[in-house]
């Protein structure tokens, strides 16, 4: 499955499109990551636990998007956009959407 953030697949031609597809996941962290984040609140710096959490959440959301696109018979998704939000203390939601197309 080809994924792009622009409105075309470079080098290929779009044959037909199947509308909007999306994938979303909500994941929460475990207590240890939260605790270290609390300490980091004082000294600042990267929250590696959260970065990992968000990467995992993002990959999972993308997988779901790809699954939905495949089920429609697409072989590419264009104009992909992400929306991340902190839905509850300790949980992150990633929502990704794009247009499913078939390219040749």
């Amino acid at each position: 499955m080809i994924l792009t953030t622009i409105d075309q697949v470079p080098g290929r031609q779009i044959q037909e499109h199947y509308g909007l597809v999306s994938g979303s996941t909500v994941r929460s962290k475990n207590v240890f990551r939260d605790f270290f984040a609390g300490l980091k609140d004082i000294v600042g710096g990267e929250l590696k636990g959260y970065t990992e959490l968000l990467e995992e959440t993002r990959s999972e959301a993308l997988e779901r998007l790809v699954t939905q696109a495949e089920s429609k018979g697409a072989n590419a998704v264009i104009n992909i956009r992400f929306a991340t939000s902190d839905v509850a203390p300790g949980a992150a939601e990633v929502f990704v959407y794009g247009t499913a197309v078939r390219v040749i």
């Binding site: 994924l3 792009t4 075309q8 470079p10 609140d41 004082i42 600042g44 710096g45």
Partner: peptide, 27 residues
């Protein structure tokens, strides 16, 4: 979003992310 070159071999979605906390003084 428009490409200047039409001879493309391959395409890949790339991402980069980071989460940073602010320190006590900043907050």
């Amino acid at each position: 979003t428009k490409l200047q070159v039409s001879e493309i071999e391959d395409v890949l979605l790339v991402t980069g992310s980071v989460a940073i906390a602010s320190d006590y003084l900043k907050t």
